[in-house]
Amino acid sequence: MTAGVPYAAGPTPSAVPYTLLRTDGGRWTVHSEFPFGGRAYDTPEYVSECMDMYDLLKARALSPDDSVSYVREISREVYQ
């Protein structure tokens, strides 16, 4: 299960979705999707920046148990 990030945590650090990938050789690569295709980036500066944004997102995320509670709370508000 993926942990949730409540709205109160503010905007995500990146407006563009991306995936961190580790190659067989242990190097990190970032893959970003755009409306007209995707692109891989492997420069250390870009990869480091994306890892920092991911760490910030993880820090804002709720624990798995708190995520379940949060989803249940929202569901009660929406479906009652």
Rank of each mutant, 00 (worst) to 15 (best):
Thr43Ala: 12
Leu20Ile: 10
Pro17Asn: 05
Gly10Asp: 00
Gly38Ile: 01
Arg39Val: 13
Thr2Phe: 15
Ala59Tyr: 11
Ser67Arg: 02
Ser48Cys: 07
Pro64Cys: 06
Ile74Thr: 04
Ser14Lys: 03
Asp66Ser: 05
Cys50Ala: 07
Gly4Asp: 08
Val78Trp: 14
Glu77Arg: 15
Gln80Ile: 12
Met1Asn: 11
Leu56Ile: 14
Tyr41Cys: 03
Ala3His: 07
Tyr18Gln: 03
Asp24Gly: 15
Phe34Gln: 07
Val71Ser: 12
Val68Lys: 03
Pro17Leu: 01
Asp55His: 13
Ser63Gln: 11
Phe36Val: 14
Val16Thr: 13
Tyr70Thr: 00
Pro17Trp: 01
Arg72Pro: 02
Tyr41Trp: 08
Arg27Tyr: 11
Val30Gly: 00
Ser63Leu: 08
Glu45Lys: 12
Gly38Arg: 07
Val5Asn: 01
Ala61Val: 09
Ala9Trp: 00
Arg76Pro: 03
Met51Pro: 05
Leu21His: 14
Leu62Val: 04
Gly38Glu: 03
Cys50Gln: 06
Arg27Gly: 04
Pro44Asn: 03
Tyr70Ser: 00
Tyr46Cys: 03
Arg76Tyr: 08
Tyr79Asp: 13
Asp66Leu: 04
Ala8Cys: 13
Arg39Thr: 14
Asp55Val: 15
Ser14Glu: 03
Ser67Asp: 01
Asp66Tyr: 05
Arg27Trp: 13
Asp65Ile: 06
Pro11His: 05
Ala8Arg: 13
Met53Leu: 04
Ala15Arg: 10
Met1Thr: 07
Glu73Ser: 12
Thr43His: 12
Gly4Lys: 08
Leu57Ile: 04
Val5Tyr: 01
Gln80His: 15
Gly38Cys: 05
Tyr79Pro: 09
Ser75Tyr: 09
Tyr70Lys: 02
Gly37Cys: 10
Val47Arg: 06
Thr23His: 11
Gly38Tyr: 02
Arg22Lys: 14
Gly25Arg: 12
Thr29Ile: 11
Ser69His: 09
Gly37Ser: 07
Gly26Tyr: 06
Met51Asn: 10
Val16Gly: 07
Arg72Ser: 08
Asp52Trp: 10
Ala8Ser: 14
Glu33Ser: 14
Gly25Ala: 11
Leu20Phe: 03
Arg72Leu: 09
Ser69Trp: 08
Pro64Gly: 05
